[in-house]
Design a protein around this nucleic acid. Sequence first.
DNA 1: CGGAGTATGCATACCTGGTATACGTTCCGC
DNA 2: GCGGAACGTATACCAGGTATGCATACTCCG
Lengths: 196, 196
Amino acid sequence: MSIRHGLLALLERGQMYGYQLRAAFEESTGSTWPLNIGQVYTTLARLERDGLVRSLPESEAGQRPYTITDAGRADLALWFATPISRTDRPRDELAIKLALALTTPGVDVRAVVQNQRTATMRTLQELTRLKYASDRPEDLPWRLVLDAMVFQAEAEIRWLDHCETSLVRYRPAPEPGGRAAAQPTEARWDGEEARR
Amino acid sequence: MSIRHGLLALLERGQMYGYQLRAAFEESTGSTWPLNIGQVYTTLARLERDGLVRSLPESEAGQRPYTITDAGRADLALWFATPISRTDRPRDELAIKLALALTTPGVDVRAVVQNQRTATMRTLQELTRLKYASDRPEDLPWRLVLDAMVFQAEAEIRWLDHCETSLVRYRPAPEPGGRAAAQPTEARWDGEEARR
DNA sequence: CGGAGTATGCATACCTGGTATACGTTCCGC
DNA sequence: GCGGAACGTATACCAGGTATGCATACTCCG
């Protein structure tokens, strides 16, 4: 629901049309997350269907501006007033990957951790480089977005290190017989282990 | 692409059918991210369409097990070998929300930050409670997933505090005239500000 | 001047992720 | 025996996300 409310917030500043909305969205986050133009139009259509925006008559240059409605303003206010909870965040692909790597035969978990660590370190350097590239005080929103990514990358590094030490202590030998794809007859996960 | 590869990794342990796959997936992440059963079947169909899994004949009990193919094994190995980059992560809804709050008239940014902070602190307490609930050493994957969420929540707290101090220093008065929805004639974002 | 390239602008097709729901069977307890 | 819980598959539907088509206007350069 991020883009819906993002467009609503931009329309709260005044009427705008699709192309403008994309530019404003990308500018407010420093082009960190490029926004496909097609999604802007489909999202605008859905917002209009739901009564949160209203499309104005096409301008002389062929642009179709939109305005936010009262219902849209209420929805936006609710979005700003409601904190983002843990349950409506997307799945953490890295965590899933590592958790599954631990129980998948033939996977070098240490290597996965190490590869990810160097990649994340590289990202972190790139982010700090970007951070000090522009120091204009009016870029506060963009710099906060950058800081969010920096903080998150640092947390990821810490977590990866934590994983590595946990691995050493708990998993000296993951599977004593090597590749364990040898039970052909029946599946090994028959549900009674699935409930903890 | 998280679930595609997740199912592939589970099938690497041996043949399984849909319902089993969901149970195994949820168990390996400690039911942190519940997986809708419908998604398992549609994803399996897409994996079979792409030649990464093969469906076996229906068992006597009416279950339809799947096996991973060689192409699937190769895809899975590639997934484990390739680190997750910054660009293919989902948008950070909280960062977008705060960046937009800064430029949206009539939004109390401090309140947004404070609300989010208390909510995240609550999740953090809940997570540490969960973390010490089970200490079985064989639950390492699940505990690592939990730790990932803890590290991320802590980073979020730090970032929110950082936002608050930045706000104090840079934005003592966001809009001197109050609600600024007063320019009715023309849109205020005409593209020449959009390029930085 | 003419054409190639680029920015502006809208629209649609298509795929994946995610959810709800329908619809069966089996098993177990009351 | 019957009602609910667990097991199991399947489909419809919506939102997020991407690629692409298509049109106009401006600019730059030979």
